[in-house]
Structures are given as structure tokens and as C-alpha cells.
Design a protein around this nucleic acid. Structure first.
Lengths: 344, 344
DNA sequence: TTGGTCTTTGCATTCGCAGTCATTTCCGTT
DNA sequence: AACGGAAATGACTGCGAATGCAAAGACCAA
């Protein structure tokens, strides 16, 4: 086992410095090196110092791959996000990544082109033996079950397990849409339109349904069209709704901010409606452009910091103790009363 | 070596199905299983079929960690990005991630709070024995050298190696700013202001210098203030510049779109200037809000798809053949003539 | 049937480190 | 000086898959 490195030339400057190299240089055994790098291990201070010095000189960093193999802890967490270009997720991703880093956990990122590409990605997730996963994409029941079978802790972000109990962190759609709808209704709006998301989007459906239900509670039926969550969909949706309502639309509920912004621009610059005088528009998410002077969108802001914080905490808990039972944490969003809608 | 799994209960449904388990079920050796999963390996078709079937039944996925240990290829690439909230990077990140996925490479994401947190992150990069890295953050010469010493292929995104030759992909700042400056000058603007980035930002400095130099070429000296690349900095910068120029400023060059947008909003809604009649404003990047109706920003759009494509290609090349010499690829941006500036 | 070539297959070893166990060292006590 | 217990250290094994090598089959020609 000592003749494995016949040619120990300038090994220090190249890749592949192992604990054996450090051990030899420090005049100790490989075990000692290993211990020197583990927190509460039994090493004499002097020895540790010698080892650390040797390690530094050689540029040694413990091989996380090998560590992972033996300890069965990769310190990797998979983050699966459907559309990163969504303007809302980058913030979430950055928060999650930084929080996880603080706990010594690295992020393996999977970005899906379509929310339905999950399956192929999962194979990779299993292969890398991640310690856990945070998912903001739609998972089928089978996929959910797969996580549990493989013993990979999972936290869903802004969606709940459909048919299976799973740990999740969400912003309350019902509460949010209720606040918006109630405000709009009380302010006297009568002709409502809703721009939803694509049919395969979880949040899209949930928010749209929340709005529809709350309107029904007031005895109001709204026109409904679907968008793709993007800027263009907002304008297009608005135009369609205007036709459907004989131009009478006076309250537009968009299930995300981006579409609301698109609708505002179209209303003002293309259709020639005044916002909010002729038409009230609301969004959902609270992305940064919503607060820009030009928009001042009335929307529901998701408490991103608290949500990511909760997601990370829940995940880490479950990595430590895999048997913690599922829990849903539902956060109320904050109503941002901007100038895009007349609310009461 | 066979008695290592004394209790083989419902092993199929739990984590930790190994190639030995599959081998036993398929009645072959572990080597055979290994080969069945490698592309051009020597296995009889019938054998492979049996193995694949067994693997499927057990839910076996090769352990990428173990593979990485022995093959010395983790199939991991580190992506280091300074501020993900920058509105421009999410698009880049999504593109990079998806392109890399297509090549069977996984992304280890490192998101920096400040561009100076690189050092701690690098330790982790070394530990995970990534096959390569794409970096959009400022690296010191020592850090650059560290990559090369450790034999980790590196591609810089929108910055070049300072003092050391490194592979990089950039959008040409000189060309871009030149187009903007020339257009503004020829349209008769006389009083110029520039809002740059934080002093520790590479692109910020580069674009600002490009603009300053080009203006100097026309014999014009501009006022200069720094911003933080965010929306607020745009408005604040504009106000400062207005004071500095006795309210005479008629051309504002922002080194990114977000600040330009902030400046536009402030100009119109706070200061009461008409854009572009009283004041021309330009940005840089070509983020999506720049094209929104409300802004129609005059800016330089980075060819993100081509740039990410190039970055990935260069990195993969260097992973295959580590000795390829450094190359800089400089892409010209596309001038978007919006309605935020009078150009000629 | 025999020999030769090519393809399949299994054995044994290895990657780098963690952790178990046995051994040694070091101290404080009596 | 001798002993007991704690602390420090080293030898060794195994995590799960890849691979060189040799053995075994398969197949064809003579």
C-alpha cells in the first residue's frame, strides 16, 4: 500500500494530493490526517498543527467524493427549478444556495426547460446520492413516492404533495387572492377577468382557482384566459379579455407579476386605458420590477426570506432525522397596495 | 465479501442498491453490471438485457460518487456567479445549466453574496474535484493560477484573466459602448454622465472605461458616479449627476440596464424630464425589462445564447484535452435602438 | 477433431478517506 | 517505582464501481 505512488515528483502542485501525501510529509499516519480534519476528533494539538501545516504546503483539500462514498453523506442537495427565467426564482435560488452553503451543504442545480422534464433529472439525482432535495416543479405521485422509497428527504417549494404527504413550504394563494379580490370587489369593480398560468403549472392553477372561488363567494363570475407567466402573455391576455367582455373589463387579476406588468403596459400604451382609473390590475409574487416607479403594482409579495429559511431548515432537519413526519408550512403573503388597482 | 449484506430484506425499495445486488439478481458478476452500464463495453447483448432488467427491478442507479472516485471524473462543473439577483445572470445560468446537462455534466452552483467571497468557495470547489468551472466573478491572479495548478479547466464569463491568460467568453464592451457613445454624440448631445458599477466589479469598470475613452476620443469629458448595478442606484446616480452638471445633463450612460431603468423612472416621475427629449439614457445587457413598453431602452444586448454555447463548448474541450491553450472569445453585442435615447 | 482468433466473463485490485480496534504514550496517584 | 485510566496514534478494512488481466466460450477453418 506504500508503493502506490512510485513517482512522487512535484506532487504538491498538481491535483491528487491525498491524505497519504500529507501524512508522509507530516510524519504521521493517514488516520491522523483524517482526524486532523474532523472537528471533535482525538488528535494532539501539536500533531494537528503539523498536519495542517503540511496540508497547506501541499495544497491538500480532503476529497469530498471519497468522503461521500464512505460516510454516505455527499453534503449535496439537489435544487430542481422549472423555469429559472421566471424573474421570481432567481431570488429564491440565490437565497437557498447561500443559506445551504452556510450549513456546509453544496447545491446541485437542475433547471428544467419544461416542467415535465423532471423524470430524466431524477435519475441524476439518485446517482449523485444527494442528501436531500428542494423542488419547485411539479412532481407526480410516483415521483414523490420515489423520494420516500429511496429515503431522500424532500421539501417542496410553493406546491404541496398531490395525494402524498410531503414536507412543503408555500405562500398562501387563498389568502393572497382573497385579499386582492375582496379589495377589488369592495372598491366597486364589477367586470372581472383572470389571466392564469399554463395548465401544467401548480401555482398557476392554485392561484387562479383561489381567485375564482373568492369571486364566486361574492357572486361574481369572471372571464378566464391562460398565459405563459411571461410579459407577452399579460398583454395578449388582456386583449382577449377585453374582447370577451365587450371592453367592459374593469378588474384584471393576473396570477403573477410579470403578466400583470405586461397587461399594464398594454392597457396604457396600446389599448389606451388608464390604470387604475379605467382598469385595476393585480399581480402575485412581489418581484422587484413590481415596485418600480413605472408600475407600482398592487400585488401579494411572497415572504421569500422566511420561506427559503423555512425550506432549508425543514430539509436539514429531515436530513438529520429522516423520520420526521411531513409538515406543510403556509406563509401569508404581504399585500402591497400599489397604484395599479383601486382597492378598499 | 458476500456476507456484507447479512440482512437482505426489501432491499430493492431502499437506498443503497449496489451493483452487487444487481449482479446477484441477474446471476452475473459485479464487473458485468458495471460494463452493462458503460457505453462501448464488451458485454453480450443478452447479458446486458438481463442486467438492465434486474437493475430496473431493483431501482438501481450507478453511484456517481463511487464512479467519480475511481474514474477521477466527477462529471461536475462548478458555476460561480457573484450576484444572481442581477436579472441578467439567471438567464445565463439557466442556459449554461441546460447546455451542460445535455452533455451529461451536472452543475454545482456557488452563488456569492459579494464578489469578494470567492476564496472560501474555492476550497469547496477543490474538494468536490469538479471537472471544470465557469466563473462570472472576479478572480485574483493567485486564484487563477490555482485553477491551473490543480489542473481544473476554467472558463471566465464576461471577464478576462488579469495578468494570466485564461479561456474566456465576453461581450465586447468597447464595441458596445462605442456604438452608444458615437450615436449619442452624433445626435448632438453635449453634457454626458456615466453611472458605473461598484469598484470591485470587472464588467462595471470595463464598460465605464470604454465609454469614457470613447467620449475622450470625441473630446468630451463626462461626469462619473458609481452605482451598485441595481434599480435604486440608477435614480440616485441620476440625481447626483444632475447636481454635478447644474441640471444640464442630456445624455446618461449606465453600465447596465437595471440602473438605466431606474434612471428613466426617476427622470420621468421624480425629476420631471422627458426621455429622450430632454435626456437620453442608455443601458447595457439587454435584459428583458429593457424591451418592455414602458422603457424601450436603448442598449446593447449580449448574445447570451451564443456566449453560453461558446462557454460550454470551450469548457468541455478543455476537460477532454487539458492542454488546449487559452483563448478569448469576444462577442459583439447587438445595438437595440429603443426609445430611451436619441441616437443617430 | 484440433487449433486459432475473437468475444464474454469473472477475479482481484484500486480510488481516497473514515472509522473500528488495538496499541502505545502520557499523566496523575499512591 | 508501579499502576490505572485517559488520550493519542497507527494498522487495517470497506464504501461502490471501474478495469487490467487471465480464463472460458464461441465460432470458424482446416
Amino acid at each position: 500500500m506504500a508503493k502506490k505512488k512510485p513517482l512522487d515528483q512535484t506532487n504538491q502542485e498538481k491535483t491528487g494530493v491525498t491524505s497519504y501525501d500529507v501524512a508522509r510529509r507530516a510524519g504521521v499516519s493517514q488516520s491522523a490526517v483524517s482526524r486532523a480534519f474532523r472537528k471533535g476528533a482525538s488528535v494532539a494539538p501539536a500533531t494537528r498543527a503539523r498536519i495542517v501545516e503540511a496540508a497547506q504546503a501541499l495544497g491538500y483539500e480532503p476529497n469530498a467524493i471519497a468522503q461521500g462514498l464512505i460516510t454516505k453523506r455527499s453534503n449535496l442537495v439537489a435544487i430542481i427549478i422549472s423555469n429559472l427565467t421566471n424573474l421570481y426564482y432567481p431570488e429564491v435560488l440565490a437565497e437557498l444556495t447561500q443559506r445551504l452553503s452556510q450549513h456546509g451543504v453544496r447545491v446541485l442545480l437542475f433547471s428544467l426547460a419544461a416542467e415535465s422534464d423532471v423524470e430524466e433529472v431524477l435519475g441524476q439525482v439518485w446517482r449523485y446520492r444527494v442528501d436531500g432535495a428542494i423542488v419547485a416543479a411539479r412532481l407526480s405521485t410516483d415521483q414523490l413516492v420515489a423520494f420516500s422509497n429511496r429515503g431522500v428527504p424532500l421539501v417542496l417549494y410553493n406546491r404541496v404533495g398531490e395525494g402524498v404527504p410531503v414536507a412543503s413550504v408555500c405562500c398562501d394563494s387563498d389568502l393572497g387572492e382573497r385579499a386582492l379580490v375582496d379589495g377589488l370587489v369592495q372598491a366597486g369593480h364589477t367586470c372581472f377577468g383572470i389571466i392564469g398560468g399554463p395548465a401544467d403549472s401548480y401555482v398557476g392553477e392554485e392561484r387562479a382557482n383561489a381567485a375564482i372561488n373568492r369571486l364566486a363567494h361574492h357572486g361574481i363570475k369572471a372571464e378566464f384566459v391562460r398565459g405563459q407567466f411571461d410579459y407577452e402573455s399579460g398583454g395578449a391576455g388582456l386583449k382577449t379579455l377585453m374582447e370577451l367582455t365587450d371592453n367592459k373589463l374593469d378588474a384584471l387579476i393576473c396570477v403573477n407579476d410579470l403578466m400583470a406588468i405586461g397587461a399594464m403596459d398594454t392597457a396604457r400604451n396600446i389599448i389606451g386605458k388608464r390604470v387604475p382609473n379605467d382598469l385595476s390590475i393585480t399581480g402575485f409574487d412581489g418581484v422587484s420590477p413590481a415596485t418600480w416607479e413605472a408600475y407600482q403594482l398592487t400585488t401579494v409579495r411572497q415572504p421569500v426570506r422566511r420561506m427559503t429559511q423555512a425550506a432549508v431548515a425543514m430539509l436539514l432537519e429531515r436530513i438529520e432525522s429522516p423520520d420526521i413526519s411531513p409538515e406543510q408550512r403556509l406563509f401569508a403573503g404581504e399585500l402591497l397596495s400599489g397604484r395599479s388597482a383601486r382597492l378598499l
